[in-house]
């Protein structure tokens, strides 16, 4: 890998983060809304301040957040802060910083989403490959069907249904929260069990609905590939079914599938916003949802840019992995 390519990739990465930061910075400023005023409005609404105080407090906060400066200066400073992963103070949780809000929420989301995404990707890709593979036994191929049918159920609705039937009606699993009230997290078996009990429903909500998507795309890919001459050739060469499946078929079909994985992360985060909310998990999704409701723009910036950086980094890595998966591109 030449130095030039590495610089190009890095430049691309910077461009992605810059584009996201710029969009996120300017769009809210196109409207005449004032997040700080709205925040205090929210507090004043419930009667916390007496008339007259608010304007002064707002002015003081404006200064604190640098909103009294010219917009270009704000933008410049903002870009500088992003380079340091410093998104400023949360508006609704001052003086906690947006970075701390993200850090507090991140473990929950990584735990839930990474596991569910990887699980559904692996299950879906394998089931999809099998479903499109004419030599697979019938019962194995039909395994994919229920998952394809479940694609019609968005994680949000799946979450609501699971919560209603399993949580409310059957009372098998807890209704919400990350762990039981009053328990303090420790490295113990009993805490781990309690934790797991609370994760089952949200994880199911995310997995059940998303396996089908991978099945579908993999199946489409598989169907296209299995007519290819090199697969036919391999068959005629007398290679075993399993070997063809793995080396010729799965590997070639996997390429677009992997592209999909990086793209899917954005969608998965979207689902998480609401699924985490339904089950009251204190992850990024919940933090984001609360920030949107409170118009807590440093946290919104922070989360959007943080997610963007994560996805961009993943895609940059994939750019390096791509040639390894498809020899034809490597030659170019």
């Amino acid at each position: 890998m030449s130095f030039k390519i590495v610089v190009k990739r890095l430049l691309f990465f910077v461009l992605v983060v810059w584009a996201a930061s710029t969009i996120v910075f300017f769009i809210p400023r196109l409207s005449s809304r004032n997040a700080i005023r709205e925040r205090f409005g929210e507090l004043a609404r419930t009667g916390g301040f007496s008339p007259g105080d608010i304007e002064k407090m707002i002015a003081s906060m404006q200064q604190q957040f640098g909103l009294d400066k010219p917009i270009f200066e704000q933008y410049w400073q903002y870009l500088g802060n992003i380079m340091r992963l410093d998104f400023g103070y949360s508006l609704s949780k001052y003086p906690t910083t947006a970075t701390e809000v993200i850090a507090q929420a991140l473990p929950w989301t990584i735990g839930l989403l990474l596991v569910t995404t990887v699980l559904s990707f692996v299950m879906g890709t394998l089931l999809g490959a099998v479903a499109a593979w004419p030599k697979a036994p019938g019962w194995l191929r039909s395994l994919a069907t229920p998952f394809i049918l479940l694609t019609g159920v968005p994680p949000v609705i799946m979450g609501i249904l699971l919560l209603f039937f399993i949580g409310f009606r059957l009372k098998w699993l807890p209704l919400g929260g990350a762990y039981s009230a009053g328990i303090v997290p420790t490295w113990s078996w009993s805490f781990f069990l309690d934790l797991m009990q609370h994760q089952i429903l949200p994880a199911l909500a995310l997995i059940l609905g998303s396996v089908g998507g991978w099945v579908l795309s993999m199946r489409g890919m598989g169907i296209t590939i299995q007519g290819e001459d090199y697969v036919n050739f391999a068959e005629h060469k007398g290679l075993t079914g399993g070997r063809i499946f793995r080396d010729y078929y799965l590997r070639n079909a996997l390429l677009p599938q992997v592209t999909g994985l990086a793209l899917a992360l954005g969608t998965v985060i979207t689902s998480a916003v609401i699924v985490e909310g339904i089950f009251g998990l204190p992850g990024i999704g919940t933090a984001l949802n609360l920030a949107i409701r409170a118009n807590d723009f440093p946290v919104i910036y922070g989360i959007v840019i943080f997610i963007t950086i994560a996805i961009a980094a993943l895609m940059t890595i994939l750019e390096f992995v791509y040639p390894l998966l498809d020899p034809r591109i490597r030659e170019n």
């Binding site: 691309f12 461009l15 992605v16 584009a19 996201a20 969009i23 996120v24 769009i27 809210p28 196109l30 409207s31 809304r33 990086a262 793209l263 954005g266 985060i269 979207t270 916003v273 984001l288 949107i292 919104i300 989360i303 959007v304 997610i307 963007t308 996805i311 961009a312 895609m315």
Partner: peptide
Amino acid sequence: RTVCQILTPIPVLLIQVVVAGS
């Protein structure tokens, strides 16, 4: 490709939320 790739990693929902909200 560059424009697409630069825009793709940005979580669309949030941009939609911001636009719809304003």
